[in-house]
Nucleic acid binder design. Sequence first.
RNA 1: GUAGGCGUAGCGUAGUUGGAUAACGCAUCGGACUCCGACUCCGAAGACCGCCGGUUCGAAUCCGGCCGUCUACACCA
Length: 586
Amino acid sequence: MKEILQQIKEVVVEGFKACDYDEKYGMVSLSNRPDLCQFQCNGAMAAAKEYKKAPIAIANEVVEKLAGNAMFSKCEACPPGFININLSDEFIASFVSGMADDTERFGVDKVASPKKIMIDYGGPNVAKPLHVGHLRSAIIGESIKRTARFMGDEVIGDVHLGDWGLQMGLIITELKLRKPELVYFDENYDGEYPTEAPFTISELEEIYPCASGKSKEDEAYKEAAMTATYELQHGRKGYQALLSHILNVSVSDLKRNYEKLDVTFDLWKGESDAQPYIPDMVQKMKDDGFAYISEGALVVDVKEDTDTKEVPPCMILKSDGASLYNTTDLATMVWRMKDYNPDSIVYVVDKRQELYFTQVFRCAKKTGIVPESTNLYFVGFGTMNGKDGKPFKTRQGGVMRLEYLLSEVEEKMLEKIKENGTMNDEDADNTAKIVGLSAVKYGDLSNQASKDYIFDIDRFTSSEGNTGPYILYTIVRCKSILAKAGVSTSDGAILPAHSESERGLQLELTKFMAALNSAYEDMAPHKICAYIYDLANAFNKFYHDTKILAEEDEAVKASYLKLLCLTKDVLEKAIDLLGFKAPERM
RNA sequence: GUAGGCGUAGCGUAGUUGGAUAACGCAUCGGACUCCGACUCCGAAGACCGCCGGUUCGAAUCCGGCCGUCUACACCA
């Protein structure tokens, strides 16, 4: 369906053209004075300059041409030159009916030319548990992915595991110390390696910090780890077998944790997958004359004339010839282009890495790893802070594991359910999980991604105010009424509004596609949150002063139910795009 | 030091392609309803939109300067 704002604009543009004014002045926007009108056009004031006329005179002329259009119930000029517009109830109702009849997309068209997008979010390290630092990337990335997919793009999510580098050498070294008898350490061993991993996930999680700690104090230990890393990376069989055990054990644990967050990836590639592409890539950069030695390291200049700040060169190889993060990220682009050839690659990463990604992006474009036609986007997000405004920590001051954070929130929700409800324990548990996740995700996504925000568990889990539970509560309320009415979907049309609050609700529903489009274009999930909060409010006003089930006129009641159904469906679609769902009951 | 982000009621946040009276929530106070599920609704109070200046019919929004704060600034990822 054509967006409602677009439809209005087309009519208003005709008005401007009919008076011989440029059509660019026919821009229509949502009213910022809802008490005066629903939509407004400010073009007359802008046009006043060009045509050297009083703005109000222009507005009056245009309004005269628009008079009598069945789409409007009001269209008037207001000093100094606003054109205020209200839609007729019939038009709104027919538009909303059209949305309701499209039970899959609610009138939202797919984009005209779908793109292939790779989105890189997650970035967990193997052998290390997910912590709160991984939360935002996962939540924001998942929502951007779902939204783009709904809009018709082909989206490939890649977790981009941190599975390369010294950390693996550390684990191997520590393991060798503890279990030197394992065949993996026997260089003369020539047979098959066991399929069973010689450790569990919890052992692994304990081994890494232990090894990391030792390496900081013990030079020899660190040396051993670096040697192990080197040997691993240069094909030592036993170590590679260990690496795949570490990967298997760790990845299945990571999957379990991401599942709790309702976050799924299409690809579980890691830094190690990029390594084979490095030698050729580096050689080509040298051959093409982009890479040169500076202070011993191999670098590519990425300065541009328009820079207002110093942009250091992008380092490709360290002075000892070893590769580094940049190298891996660039090589990752190599296989992404080779295997998938996406139209754009989106990185959902902590905003502190912005300069680093500027360097990498420029280097990729300059050296031709990524063609001009492929867009590279950096979606930087801010820090999640505690109530004190400083980065979120446990009470002990350490980094909080994601699992613990989630269960703390779930517990909080469970308390509330037990206080009020008559649910059995199992249902209560499940509901607490669902509602708890909504609290965490909505709390995060309702802020602009690029800003820091304060994680306030009491506020996020409250069912009042702009929170996930409030949205869910509204959905559950809709479901409950529909269940009592014994309908899930209803035929017939939505009638023109019978009250101020119903008009408000219908009007709010018409804004769905505009909200989605703008969230999609800006990769800004918080715009979806803002929209559904407004929608939930509009619904609750309607709910408060309308007796739906007691309505005696059957046609009106059917219309109410259909409106209710649409509201519920739109809300559920929206939260699905945000990455959570509603329970049947709360 | 250089560059960038941020600064909006007590608190947490929208709004930043310039538009009418700066929006919302929490907390506070006062009502309505207590009926379709932890509620919902209506209202009050609360803001020199960090400060100063500029651009214009009009600035939270654009420009310049200052203050505060966070962050980044080549061999860590």
